[in-house]
């Protein structure tokens, strides 16, 4: 029986290094490229038609656009338009990673802390950078909630600071842990079926149950894949809102 952890192993396809830093083209990178190519192809085809009455492809692309645009508009506001391409890319990139990862023998790059952590850090630094760019030092008033009594400040300010700096951690771990746990469960349940089948004819019959459970789990994982991409994008919106509206 295969180790359920083994599916997350990074295997170099094309070794490549820059100085002493290993930048090999791995299975992770391969699926990132596949996801990027697929999404670009799909969206280009969707955007190519430009007809007044959209076809299937076009309406799917436009729906995707409207969903993310609505997310940005509702969570950041009209000033969030500048972040729209970023949120859209983020959503598509994570969605591709999650969904493509459900294909057997593929690799789920969003199940790696390096990837989710990097994405979360990008969001974090964007908030920091644009917050200071737009508001200057006033940005740090984010940690001082307006309306709270003065004597509460020594408690509230550290809390706000912690909640601010813990954001990239929660954001990245939520996604990576969800993806990893889902894939481990799928693999373990599938392992039960294989183990049962290896006993004999009776075992093979018994092995039907894990297969049925795995089908249900796979459907559930499809849902999780979309929901987690959505959650990541929407939380990024919420965080980026601080850069346009300090107090809300």
């Amino acid at each position: 029986m295969a180790n359920p952890i083994h599916q997350f192993a990074i295997e170099p396809k094309i070794p490549f290094a820059l100085g002493n830093i290993d930048l090999s083209f791995t299975n992770s990178a391969l699926w990132m490229v596949i996801g990027a190519v697929l999404s670009i192809t799909f969206l280009s085809m969707a955007a190519k038609q430009k007809s007044l009455v959209p076809g299937r492809m076009q309406i799917a692309g436009e729906m995707l656009y409207e969903v993310v645009a609505g997310m940005v508009r509702n969570n950041i506001g009209i000033k969030g338009r500048q972040y729209f391409p970023f949120i859209f890319t983020l959503f598509i990139f994570i969605l591709m990673g999650n969904v493509l990862g459900l294909i057997p023998y593929s690799f789920t790059y969003t199940s790696h802390l390096a990837v989710t952590g990097m994405l979360a850090l990008i969001v974090f630094f964007m908030v920091f950078f644009f917050g200071i760019f737009y508001h200057g030092l006033k940005f740090f008033s984010l940690f001082v909630p307006s309306g709270a009594p003065l004597w509460l400040m020594p408690f509230i300010i550290p809390l706000e600071l912690i909640s601010f700096f813990v954001r990239p951690l929660t954001l990245s771990i939520r996604l990576f842990a969800n993806m990893m746990a889902g894939h481990i469960i799928l693999k373990v349940v599938a392992g039960f079926a294989v183990a049962a089948a290896s006993i004999g004819a009776g075992g093979a019959l018994l092995g039907i149950f894990p297969v049925v459970i795995n089908i249900a789990l796979l459907v559930f994982e499809c849902l999780v894949a979309v929901v987690q991409a959505y959650v990541f994008a929407i939380l990024s919106c919420v965080y980026l809102k601080d850069t346009v509206d300090l107090h809300h």
């Binding site: 170099p12 290993d22 083209f25 490229v33 990139f93 790696h112 990097m118």
Partner: peptide, 11 residues
């Protein structure tokens, strides 16, 4: 490094 590098490239 390799993951982050390719993430940034594709992203």
């Amino acid at each position: 490094p390799s993951q982050i590098f390719w993430l940034i490239v594709t992203f």
